[in-house]
């Protein structure tokens, strides 16, 4: 069985590194890249069509969820942001899990990724 592909959209380079180093420890997924800006992110979403998306909200340019509103491909999404979950009321996107920064533990992210894998 082929692995799930995973894309990270996060403009804080160091935070993206942390997310990646946790995600690579989940054997079922394959992290295919990190985007630190919205233009790249939109391009990669359409070209690579990742199965799972780790999405930040505040990115310079568009805001993270706005990219998803524009693109046709809708991956299973984990929103990771410093805002409370009520911020998602401003956007019209579906997401599997919501994680408010800071990360409480590595397992918090790992569990969220499994939620995505198991989501039908």
């Amino acid at each position: 069985m082929s692995k799930f592909t995973c894309l990270i959209i996060e403009d804080d380079k160091a935070f993206a590194d942390i997310l990646e180093s946790i995600a690579v420890k989940v054997p079922e997924i394959d992290v295919i890249g990190i985007c630190d800006n919205t233009v790249d992110a939109a391009k990669r979403l359409e070209l690579d069509k990742p199965d799972i998306l780790l999405l930040d909200v505040n990115i310079s340019g568009l805001e993270g969820p706005e990219i998803l509103e524009m693109t046709d491909h809708k991956p299973r999404t984990i929103v990771i942001t410093s805002h409370g979950e009520e911020v998602m009321e401003n956007y019209d996107i579906e997401y599997v899990e919501f994680i408010q920064k800071p990360l409480r533990s590595a397992d918090q992210l790992v569990n969220a990724i499994y939620e995505c894998i198991n989501a039908v």
Binding site: D12, F15, S21, P102, R104, S105
Partner: peptide, 17 residues
């Protein structure tokens, strides 16, 4: 930056890194 520091400290407890 605070989120970064805290996340890093949180996950270092888990030996995730």
């Amino acid at each position: 930056p605070l989120n970064l520091f805290q996340s890093l400290l949180n996950i270092s407890d888990d030996k995730a890194i």
